[in-house]
Nucleic acid binder design. Structure first.
Length: 452
RNA sequence: GGCCCGUUCGUCUAGGGGUUAGGACAGGAGAUUUUCAUUCUUCAAACACGGGUUCGAUUCCCGUACGGGCUACCA
C-alpha cells in the first residue's frame, strides 16, 4: 500500500477529465466497497470455496523451504509435479494440516492446476490463445497476511462487480489462462468478462517497456501528475507540471497502439469515445515518440481560445513576471500562441510583460549601423502622434518614417525589434507596438539606442 | 532457458492476394512572413529473411531471424 497513491489516481483521472461513474473518490454505486482492503473477507471466502471444491490447497512452505525447492531444479516452479515435495495440504496428513492451522502457522492458499491441460481463451485483440497448464504454476491466491494476490482479487471483484471487459496491458497475457481457470473453478465461466490485452508502450531508445525512470532520463514525463515516491523521495515529473494540456495527452496516448482507420489525428475526448473500436488496436508495442507528443500539445495550444490560454498561463506569468491585467494577458498571449509547445514556454516571452534589459549581442551587432541615421527624438515624437490601436496605420507610418529619414525599412525594423524583444525574432513589430503601447515602446527604443 | 505475443518509411501507423503501398511526426528543399514562429507547396524514406500455396504475394501457411512480454506471498 503506497501512501497517497489512491488520491494520486483520483487526481489524475480528474485532471484528464475522466470521471468514473462510481468508485473510491467518485462516490458509491451498487458495488461498494471499492478498496481491496475493505473486501478482504470476501476473498478468503472464495479461496475457501476453491479449497472445498479441490481446486486449491494450503501451502505451509517457508521462505527457506521454497529456496531449497528452487535450488533443487534450475527452472523450478511450484506445480503439479513439484508440489509433492512441498509442505502443503496435499502432502501433509489431514491431522497435521489442522494442527498447523490451529497453531496459527503461516500459510498461503495456492491454486491446484492440472498437470497437463490446454487452457483456451479468446482475446479481443489477439484472437484465440492456448496455454498448457504444464507451463503454468500453482500461483498463490491468498497470501499469508490474508490479502489476495491480484489474480484472485481481480477475478472475484470483476465477477461481483459484473465487469464486462478486462482491458489491460499485454504483460498480463501470460496470466490470463490462470484467470480463466479461476472463473471456471469458481463456477463463473458463463459470465466471464471479455479480455483485451493492449500493446505495451516501449522506450523510445533501446529495448523494453517504458519505465518511470526513462522519462526523466530522456527529458519527458511518464507520470500524468508529478509524483514523489513516499519511500525514496524520488520525484518523477508530470505532464501537467511540464505544461501539457490534458486533451493533448489523451489524444497522444490514444494513438499509441490505436488508430481510427482514417487520416484524422486530432480527436477531442468525445470524438475519441465516438471513434474508438477494439478492432483498430494494433498488436505490436509502440515506442513512445517525444516529438509527436510535443506536436500534439502544440496543436492543442494553437486551438485554444486566447482567453482560455491566458487563464491557463496566468499563474505562471504572475509568478515570473508580476501580476498582469487580464485583457492585456489575453492580447499578449494571442501574439505568441503558435510559438508555444508547452504552456510553460510562456516563460520564454518575458518581453511581453517586462522591459527588455539584456540584448542579444549578435543581434545588437547587426543593428549598430543604424546609430548614425536614426534620430531617437524625432522617432519618439513621430510615434506619439500615432493611433496607438491601429496596427495597419502604424505599419504604413513606420515605413513612411523610414523613407522620410532615408533609413532602410529593414534596418529600422530590426532595430525596433531588438529594442522591444531583445533579439531578432518574435511577433510582427506593429502588433508589438500596439500591445506594449506607445510610451513603453518609446522607452524601450531609447534604452536600446543608448546601448548601441 | 521455457512459454506466450508480435514484425509496413528513423518513429506512430493505414492498407490488404493484382495499389504509383496512403497519412502523421521528425528530416531536406522552396513559397509566404521585413525576423523568428505559424501556414502552404514539395522531396526523400518501409512491407525482416527463406520456403511454400497461387496465374499472381507485402497481404494466406510454415520455418528462420529479430523484438516484446511473462516466468514473485508485485501489480
Amino acid at each position: 500500500l503506497v501512501p497517497g497513491a489512491e488520491q494520486y489516481v483520483i487526481d489524475t483521472l480528474k485532471w484528464v477529465g475522466i470521471e468514473p461513474n462510481e468508485g473510491a473518490g467518485f462516490g458509491d454505486g451498487n458495488f461498494t466497497p471499492y478498496r481491496q482492503s475493505d473486501r478482504k473477507d470476501s476473498y478468503r471466502q472464495y479461496a475457501e470455496q476453491l479449497l472445498k471444491a479441490g481446486f486449491a490447497y494450503y501451502a505451509f512452505d517457508t521462505e527457506a523451504d521454497l529456496e531449497q525447492l528452487k535450488a533443487s531444479h534450475p527452472n523450478f516452479k511450484y506445480d503439479a509435479t513439484t508440489r509433492v515435495n512441498g509442505k502443503n495440504s496435499l502432502t501433509l496428513s489431514e491431522n497435521e494440516v489442522t494442527l498447523r492451522l490451529e497453531n496459527n502457522e503461516d500459510y498461503v492458499i495456492r491454486i491446484k492446476l492440472p498437470a497437463n491441460e490446454d487452457v483456451k481463451f479468446y482475446d479481443e485483440i489477439r484472437g484465440h490463445v492456448t496455454v498448457n497448464t504444464s507451463q503454468m504454476d500453482d500461483k498463490v491466491l491468498l497470501k499469508s497476511d490474508g490479502m489476495p494476490t491480484y489474480h484472485l482479487a481481480n477475478v472475484c471483484d470483476d465477477y461481483v462487480m459484473q465487469i464486462s471487459h478486462v482491458i489491460r496491458g499485454e504483460e498480463w497475457l501470460p496470466s490470463a489462462p490462470l484467470h480463466v481457470l479461476l472463473y471456471r473453478y469458481l463456477g463463473w465461466e458463463s459470465s466471464m468478462p471479455k479480455f483485451a490485452h493492449l500493446p505495451i508502450v516501449l522506450k523510445p531508445d533501446g529495448n523494453g517497456k517504458l519505465s518511470k525512470r526513462d522519462g526523466d532520463r530522456l527529458g519527458f514525463p511518464v507520470f500524468p501528475l508529478e509524483w514523489t515516491d513516499p519511500k525514496t523521495g524520488e520525484i518523477s515529473s508530470g505532464y501537467k507540471q511540464k505544461g501539457y494540456l490534458p486533451e493533448a495527452v489523451i489524444n497522444m496516448l490514444a494513438f499509441l497502439g490505436w488508430n481510427p482507420g482514417t487520416e484524422q489525428e486530432i480527436f477531442s475526448k468525445e470524438a475519441l469515445i465516438e471513434a474508438f473500436s477494439i478492432e483498430h488496436i494494433h498488436k505490436a508495442g509502440a515506442k513512445f515518440d517525444f516529438e509527436k507528443a510535443k506536436w500534439f500539445n502544440a496543436e492543442y495550444i494553437k486551438k485554444l481560445p486566447n482567453e482560455e490560454l491566458a487563464f491557463l498561463v496566468k499563474e505562471n506569468v504572475s509568478a515570473k513576471f508580476g501580476k498582469q491585467d487580464e485583457t492585456y494577458l489575453t492580447r499578449a498571449v494571442s501574439l505568441i500562441k503558435e510559438r508555444l509547445v508547452f504552456l510553460n514556454d510562456i516563460e520564454l516571452f518575458g518581453y511581453l510583460f517586462q522591459a527588455t534589459e539584456k540584448y542579444d549581442s549578435t543581434s545588437l551587432s547587426k543593428i549598430s549601423n543604424i546609430k548614425e541615421s536614426f534620430n531617437v527624438d524625432a522617432f519618439e515624437s513621430f510615434l506619439q502622434g500615432q493611433n496607438s490601436a491601429d496596427i495597419i496605420a502604424i505599419e504604413t507610418s513606420l515605413k513612411e518614417f523610414a523613407a522620410n529619414n532615408s533609413i532602410k525599412v529593414g534596418d529600422m525594423m530590426k532595430f525596433i525589434r531588438v529594442s522591444l524583444v531583445g533579439e531578432l525574432s518574435g511577433p510582427a513589430i506593429p502588433d508589438l507596438i500596439v500591445l506594449l503601447g506607445i510610451n513603453e515602446t518609446n522607452k524601450r527604443i531609447r534604452n536600446c539606442f543608448n546601448q548601441l
